[in-house]
Structures are given as structure tokens and as C-alpha cells.
Design a binder for these strands. Structure first.
Length: 478
RNA sequence: UCCUCGGUAGCUCAACGGUAGAGCGUUCGGCUGUUAACCGAAAUGUUGGGGGUUCGAAUCCCUCCCGAGGAGCCA
């Protein structure tokens, strides 16, 4: 009976997804008319420069240019029209006077709709009223493809509606800004490690067993065997650290936990450095340097996007190392003092993280946790064998844990006993034990969730807007 | 999986036991510097599905479905 109920539930779930994809409400719009693309080139003077990015425009002031893009918005009166044209690099306003264009072009301007693709030709003019400093005085205009009934209008919408139309929502200014910040963060991560002679190691997505033995993993069929989508690249990074010294991986990570909060995704991106002969103090320093570098870089290179997102950058300007450090034991004392009773040995929840982070204006490092609720591979603290040399970096403003790291156990026999204590299959970890068997070395590393970091930088409250196509509990469309 | 709140026009919402409405979008008309432009007019509904209470249900009850927020778990 239970099994039958589950099967029914799954089937209904599948139908809902299918229904969402078919989009009953959207069908009539799709059937309303055939979508046409009109490739006929407009008569083009030799002098017009083809522009592929809005950012090039200011270099062409006074010149004749031509660009293709989408109508972001339009305002018009009887004799003048203002067309916001979006293409790579942003949005530029094209101003068209009725007398400045042909009759055919004016008719197209009158009927053009939001999100139609168009080609505009005109002179680049500097104008103080323009947010980007320039606009185009149009003398030619052509519709390439006329859009009808674009679902996302320039007014407010609920997030449920917007998530159903995520593929179109990406075109909105705030979404463009958030994704550009994400891209800058990812480039910053690669530059940070490249500049410090780290080698990028792509860890596998399909794995034969659970990495840490705790999380729920997505299971898949591997030619008759079970395989799992990776929840961390770390274990595969440690052998690479023996080969190359300083390594990192950066890729998607999967957790099948049925988490339904603004801080969770089923599929997210994680960057994980691993460094040979780096011990705990060095790990804390690397973590600080890394986060400080990225925050400074975003402040420097993503100003315009942060403005669109209305991010309070004063808060980010404080993200300068050194960061405050407290031990787990001190954290428990703070929580008890702040009226959030917690026994030594209990893990933090979201509320506890927020209270701890609110005590500081910079990210705070919490270190030396009880071994009981941390991963099996963490090196014991020599000053207190009940705790491990692990660190969590808690971001301010309620963004919570963005980094988790530790020094790893490098002693073969100690690691073996930990694997056994955690009831993990020793055979599956033989290769991991080999790292200690053939030239043991102290080493440390951390993992950072990209979406949480981007959410913090952008001030977005929900991870779903920090990744182009979020995968959430029971939601995988589009 | 559990708890809380919600589902009314394409969208955002109002009406809370007595004739289903507004703004935006759409269509039509007007306007030579607009910045979510503005002004005038028009069209638009199986009130999430099913069942029940009632003279009468968008409104109250039951149930299912869907969505949002949170808990646990984590990055």
C-alpha cells in the first residue's frame, strides 16, 4: 500500500512537470500565429559600422552604426519614438523621429512589440540623459521577428510565475546583472588560483560511492551497477595534490536532500582547493585571502551590476582580511549569552549561524568543531582530540555558511579507524587510503558554494536567482 | 517528511454568505524628449479540481492538486 501510494505520487509528479512544460496557458499564444524571421537586409550604406556590443558604442560617437537586438521597452508619441534595444553589453536607446526614417520603417516602429528582434541603424550621439552616456539617432529600422504576447511585462510578477518562465526571465535587467556578477565571481576564482600556480583538476561527476557517507545522493544506473552524482570533488582532489601540490576543482555538485529553503539547491557549483603541506593556520589564511580577493574584485569590476541590484556596497567594502576567528567552544558561549541555549556538541542551525555572524561586520571563521558531527577525514586538534581542525566561514547579513574546510587526516591508520568508526566500506576507500600509504603529507582544503557567495555579493535573498537554471525540490522546469 | 500561509482576467491583487472588480498588459485613438512615459476608449473569467452545507458559495466545511515561506540537512 505504501509502495503503491509512492508510485502514484511519483506519477502525478511527472504529469505536473509535463503539464508545466506543455504550459496549457501558453499554448493558445503559441498557436496564435507562425513565428517568422525576416532576414531581408535593409539597404545599408558602406559607412555603417556593425556593432555587436553596447559597450563599443561610446567609441563610435558621431559615426553611423548598425546593431541588432531585442526591444526591451518602447515609448512613443505620434512623431517621435524611444526604443530600448538590448543586445550584448546592455541596453541602448534608439530615438526615431517620424521624418528621419522611411514610411516603412516608421510603420515598423509603430507596431513593434516588446522582445521583438530588430535591426537599427543610426548615428551615435552623446547625451547626458542616457544612463550609458550615448544613444542612437535612428535613420533606419527593421523588424526581424515580431513577438506577440510576451509573458513578462514591465510590471510586477510573482516568483512562481517568473520561475515558470525562467528562460525568459533571464532577459530582465536584475537577472542579467546577477548572472554577470556570477560570471565575474567564477572568473575571479579561476584567476585567483591560476595566479597562485594552482592546477585545475576536474573531478568526476559520476562516483561509485558516497564521498562522506552522510548526504543523500542522486542514484543512477551505471551499466547495471549503481553510481551516484558527486556531492564533492575533494576526495578525488587529495591524490591530485600529491601529484601537483596545489590543486583545485570547480564544478557542479549534487545533493538529493529534500531541502526546501532559500539557501538550498539540488544542483549547485562548488570550488574546492586542496594544498599539500598546508596546515590549519595556513588554511585559515588562504580562506581569508580568497574571500577578500573576490569581494574586492566584485566591488571593482561589477559596480554597474551591483547598482542595478541595489546592493549596499558599504557592507562589502568591510570584507577585508583579517577576519575574526572564534572556536566552536567560544561560539557556543556567545550563543548562550545571546539567549540561544546550545549544548557543547550540538551543531548549529540557520538561526545560530545568523546570530553568530551578526556579532561581526566581517565574515567570521568558526574553528575546531567537535569531531562528532563533522566528516570522517578531518584532522584531530592536537590541543583537544575531541575536536577537529575544521573551519566554517559564516558570511554576514544572514547569508550563513559559505565555506567549509579542514586539515585532512594524513596518518594511514588513524584514517582507517575513522572509516571503520563511520561504518564506511573500507574497500571503496582503498584508493583514498593509498594517498596516506605512499608518501603521507599534511594537507588542507576547503569548499565554497558559488551560489551562496553570489547571493551574498549581490544581496539576493534566494539562491534561485544566482544560477541560470535552478534545480529545486520537485522543480526541474525549464 | 513535517509546520505555516496562499491559489479570483495574460500578470499583480480586491471583493470574505447576496449582481466578480481595479491597476498593468492587450486592441483602437491622441501626443516631438520619453525613462516601469502619459491621456481617452474597448475587449477579457468554468474564482485550482472534486464533493458537501445553504434559498443562494470566490467566500463556510471535507478532500486532492499546485505554489510560497520555514524546519531538519547542508555549501
Amino acid at each position: 500500500m505504501l509502495a503503491g501510494g509512492r508510485a502514484g505520487g511519483h506519477r502525478r509528479g511527472a504529469e505536473q512537470e509535463g503539464g508545466g512544460a506543455a504550459g496549457g496557458r501558453r499554448r493558445p499564444g503559441e498557436a496564435a500565429g507562425e513565428v517568422e524571421y525576416n532576414p531581408a537586409p535593409m539597404s545599408q550604406p558602406i559607412s555603417a559600422t556593425s556593432v555587436t556590443s553596447i559597450r563599443e558604442l561610446s567609441q563610435h560617437a558621431g559615426q553611423e552604426v548598425e546593431l541588432s537586438g531585442w526591444i526591451d521597452n518602447k515609448r512613443s508619441s505620434g512623431k517621435i519614438a524611444f526604443l530600448q534595444v538590448r543586445t550584448a553589453g546592455g541596453v541602448v536607446q534608439a530615438v526615431a523621429g517620424r521624418k528621419d526614417v522611411s514610411e516603412e520603417a516608421w510603420a515598423d516602429i509603430e507596431r513593434v512589440t516588446q522582445e521583438s528582434t530588430v535591426r537599427v541603424r543610426g548615428t551615435v550621439k552623446e547625451d547626458k540623459r542616457s544612463p550609458i552616456g550615448v544613444e542612437i539617432q535612428a535613420n533606419g529600422f527593421e523588424i526581424l521577428s515580431l513577438t506577440q504576447d510576451y509573458p513578462i511585462t514591465p510590471k510586477e510578477h510573482g516568483t512562481a510565475f517568473l520561475m515558470e518562465h525562467r528562460h525568459l526571465w533571464l532577459r530582465s535587467s536584475r537577472q542579467r546583472a546577477a548572472l554577470r556578477v556570477r560570471s565575474e565571481v567564477e572568473q575571479g576564482i579561476r584567476d585567483f588560483f591560476y595566479d597562485r600556480q594552482f592546477t585545475l583538476i576536474d573531478s568526476p561527476i559520476l562516483t561509485p560511492a558516497a564521498c562522506e557517507g552522510t548526504s543523500t545522493l542522486f542514484e543512477t544506473d551505471y551499466f547495471g551497477d549503481k553510481a551516484y552524482l558527486s556531492q564533492s570533488g575533494q576526495l578525488y582532489l587529495e591524490p591530485a595534490a600529491a601529484a601537483l601540490g596545489k590543486v583545485y576543482c570547480f564544478g557542479p555538485t549534487f545533493r538529493a536532500e529534500k531541502s526546501k529553503t532559500r539557501r538550498h539547491l539540488m544542483e549547485f557549483w562548488m570550488v574546492e582547493p586542496e594544498v599539500a603541506f598546508l596546515e590549519f593556520e595556513g588554511l585559515c589564511a588562504l580562506t581569508e585571502e580568497f574571500v577578500g580577493y573576490l569581494a574586492a574584485r566584485i566591488l571593482d569590476r561589477s559596480k554597474e551590476d551591483l547598482k542595478v541590484l541595489e546592493r549596499d556596497t558599504a557592507k562589502l567594502e568591510k570584507v577585508v582580511p583579517p577576519f575574526p576567528r572564534i572556536t566552536y567552544t567560544q561560539a557556543v558561549e556567545i550563543l548562550n549569552r545571546e539567549g540561544n541555549p546550545l549544548k557543547w556538541g550540538d551543531d548549529f542551525g540557520g538561526d545560530e549561524e545568523t546570530i553568530l555572524a551578526s556579532q561581526f561586520d566581517r565574515p567570521v571563521m568558526v574553528t575546531r568543531f567537535p569531531a562528532s558531527f563533522k566528516a570522517f577525514y578531518m584532522q584531530p586538534d592536537p590541543e583537544n582530540p575531541e575536536t577537529v581542525l575544521g573551519l566554517d566561514l559564516l558570511a554576514p547579513e544572514g547569508y550563513g555558511e559559505i565555506i567549509g574546510g579542514s586539515q585532512r587526516i594524513h596518518d594511514h591508520d588513524l584514517l582507517l579507524s575513522r572509516i571503520q568508526q563511520h561504518n564506511l566500506p573500507v574497500e571503496a576507500f582503498q584508493w583514498y587510503l593509498d594517498v596516506r600509504k605512499y608518501g603521507a603529507f599534511p594537507h588542507s582544503g576547503f569548499g565554497m558554494g558559488i551560489e551562496r557567495f553570489v547571493a551574498w555579493m549581490t544581496g539576493l535573498t534566494h539562491l534561485r536567482e544566482t544560477i541560470p537554471y535552478p534545480r529545486m525540490l520537485y522543480k526541474i522546469y525549464p
